[in-house]
Every structure is written in structure tokens, then in C-alpha cells.
Simulated assay, not measured.
Amino acid sequence: MVSFATPLQLGPLLLKNRVIMSSLTRDRNRVPGPLQVEYYTQRTGAGLILTEGTLIEPLGAEWSNAPGIYSDEQVAGWKKVVDSVHNHNGRIFLQLWHIGRVAHPLLQDGRPNVAPSAIAAKGGKFRQLEGTPGFVTPVAIEDPEHYVALYKRAAERAKEAGFDGVDLHNANGYLPHQFIDNTSNQRTDQWGGSAENRCRFTLRIIDEISKVFGNDRVGIKLSPSGGYNDMGMTEKDTIETFDYLIKELVARRIAYIQITRYWPERDPMKRGTAVDIFRWRNVINGEHTKFFANAEFNAEDGTKVLKEGLADAIVFGRLYIANPDLAQRLINKDELNSNFNPKTFYGGSAVGYTDYPTYEQQHSTII
């Protein structure tokens, strides 16, 4: 019977377990430093670590201290992280990130936000700005191939840093997702209209970064249900679009497809459509491309999904903040630490970042 402890063959990589650390924005340092080395090294018990969203260019930021992979200094910083993870028998993929139209309006260096179409997302609240300033209207991208090239260059830099692979952030209303959704993409050229055209941007990126790492070291994150950052098509359009996209991704034999469940907390505008992510299990059957299930899983849910063969691995997010040894706790059925402070999730120092105890540290007896 498959469990958290069961190893998983992911392309050429053998993962020691099926507990995946989700990408978690922590907004601590544009250039990874000693604190990031410590943070990721603490979590090397995971079968695979997915880094926080990492920007592919200096613009396109939502956070003032989100890391990037667009400079030599950042490559050098990430290399120290990767080397330490590898020295502790861990595996780590870099998540490639561009957030397009939902970027922080004061972090654009005087340049406009970009998107597939000049359509502003509704709502908008930035943690670093008081009130609800709202999202700005973006400028329609003239040549999407320019951004495809940026993703490829970012993958090349990730390879220089020694990462085991890359994860394309194609969810949560960020740039590739904006191309997929027909409410944010109303282009009439080859990049818009039909499901095939709206998925072209994503598939072009996958094809180009696969040339860098090999298709079996490339993964992708999808959120079909939408909701976050004003994403959400009709149920019919959602199913049609993601049926096509997932079929094309599986045909490319990429390492994994990570799909997030509908998360009402992330849908303040009530834009999402709650789609059963396991409807795609028959397509992502694990023969070449693995199915990673994400969003608000606990130990019981994850155990059940693995036991029933609905997914090949479970991706955990916030639980990995307060439990640096989460994989070991899940495997050993140890109690999880739920004592975390959301105020320290984003920005700051080691507090709420690297100071959470392991199970052993929590229960050690001082003599």
C-alpha cells in the first residue's frame, strides 16, 4: 500500500518519500543568503522541495523582498541553498514566477504592468500598501515570445545554480494563468480565443524550459478552479481548457503536474468554480508524468488520497512553515505543530522562519 513513506520515481530522480514541500512566498531576501540556506536545509526531509516563487525578471513583483533568478548574484545565492540541500540528501526544484497584471503598482520601476490583454483584475489588496488600492490596468503584451525567452533564460540560470529541475507557476492568476483564462485573455491572435490558443503560452514555456533541463525535470502548478487574483471561467470553459492543457502536458512527459484544490479562502470575489481535481487522474496516470495534489491537505486527507491511488504525492504548504520536519512527522504519525503566527509568514527575520522546532526538539527533556 502506498503511503507517505513510499519512495517515488520522478523522471531520473528517486524521491525518498511522497511528501512535497509547496512553494511558499516568505518575502525575506531578494538574493538568497545564509537565512535561506538554513530555512531550506531544515526541510530536506521532504521528498522534494519546491522553492518559493522566484521572479524571472526585476519587474513583475508583488513583494519588495521576493527572490529572483535574473542576476548572477542571485544565482550564486541560490547555489549555496542548493548545495546545502544536496549535502543533506534533499531534492529541490526552483519555481519560475511572473505575476503579470497583479503586480504591486509601486514596484514596477515606472513601467506598466503587463498581461495578455489590457484588462485589470477586479479587487486588489497588497500587504505592503494600506487599504485596498486595487489592481491597475495592464498593458497588453505585444510579443509573448519575449516572455517565453525570459522563462527559458531563468531556467538556464536555475541549472547554473544546480537545481534538480524547475516548476512553472501556472496558477493563482499569475501571468501564464492569465493567458489561459478567457476572462483575462481576450486576444484575437494566435495567443487567444480557443482553448488551444490560450494554452499556447504555457506550452511554449514548457517546451523551452524542457530544452534546458529535459522534460522529465520540469513540473507545473495549475489551479483550475480559479478564484485567487480574479481568475475564473465558466465550468464548461474550465473543463474544456484544462482537459486540453493537461492532455498536452502529459503528452510531453513532464515530471509532474501539480493541481490545487478549490480554496474558498483565496476567492474573496467568489469568482472560482469548485472543480474536482481528481477528474484528471485517469489522464495523469503516473506512468511518466506524476500527479501531485495540493491545497489544504492534512495528514488524514493525504493518507487517504495516497492509499486510494488518487495522486502520486501530496504537496503541503502552511504546515511546512511550522513543521520543518513535516515529512518525518507524517511518516511516523507524530503530532503536528499547529502553533504558528500568520503575522510572521511574510517578511522579517528568522522569527517565524527558521525558529520552529522539530518534533524531537519539542519533546526533548533537558537534564
Rank of each mutant, 00 (worst) to 15 (best):
Y174H: 11
R153P: 00
D164Q: 12
G162L: 10
A155P: 01
G123W: 03
A120G: 05
R101H: 09
A161Q: 07
A154W: 01
I92W: 09
V102M: 10
L150P: 00
H146S: 07
E142A: 14
G162C: 09
G134M: 02
G173T: 13
R127H: 09
I92A: 09
Q128F: 06
Q95K: 05
P116N: 11
P138K: 07
L175H: 03
G131S: 09
H169R: 07
G90I: 08
F163W: 05
V114S: 05
V139A: 09
G123K: 06
G123S: 06
P133L: 12
E145N: 10
I92F: 04
H98F: 10
A161L: 04
L106F: 08
R127A: 11
L96I: 10
R127W: 05
I141S: 06
L168E: 03
P144Y: 13
L106S: 13
I99N: 07
L106P: 00
A103Y: 01
E145I: 06
A161R: 03
P138M: 05
Y151S: 11
R101C: 07
E156Y: 11
A149P: 00
A149L: 07
G165S: 05
R111F: 11
L94M: 14
R101Y: 10
W97N: 08
A154Q: 01
G110T: 09
P133Y: 14
G162W: 12
L175N: 02
A120P: 03
Q108W: 08
A149T: 14
V114G: 06
G90S: 07
D109H: 14
V148G: 10
P144E: 10
R127S: 11
P116W: 12
A171P: 05
Y147S: 01
R101A: 15
H169S: 12
G100E: 10
L129I: 15
P133G: 08
D109M: 13
I141E: 09
R111M: 12
H104V: 10
R157T: 04
W97E: 00
A158E: 04
A161W: 04
P144S: 11
R153D: 10
E142V: 09
E156N: 12
N113V: 14
P116D: 12
H146Y: 12
G124I: 07
K152R: 15
F93A: 01
Q128Y: 07
L107P: 01
I141C: 05
D109S: 14
G162I: 12
D143N: 15
G165R: 11
L175F: 05
Q108E: 15
S117I: 13
W97V: 00
G131D: 09
G90N: 02
D143V: 10
G162H: 11
N113G: 08
A121N: 01
L168D: 04
A149R: 14
N89W: 00
K159E: 12
L96H: 10
A171V: 12
H104S: 11
A118G: 04
K125I: 02
A121S: 15
P105T: 15
D167H: 12
R127F: 08
A171M: 04
R91D: 00
K159C: 04
G131M: 03
H169E: 06
A118E: 05
I141Q: 04
Y151M: 04
T132C: 02
R127Y: 12
P133D: 13
G173S: 11
Y151F: 15
P105Y: 14
A158S: 15
A149Q: 13
H104E: 08
G173D: 05
V136T: 15
G173W: 08
R101K: 14
T132D: 13
F126R: 04
V136H: 02
E145H: 08
R153H: 08
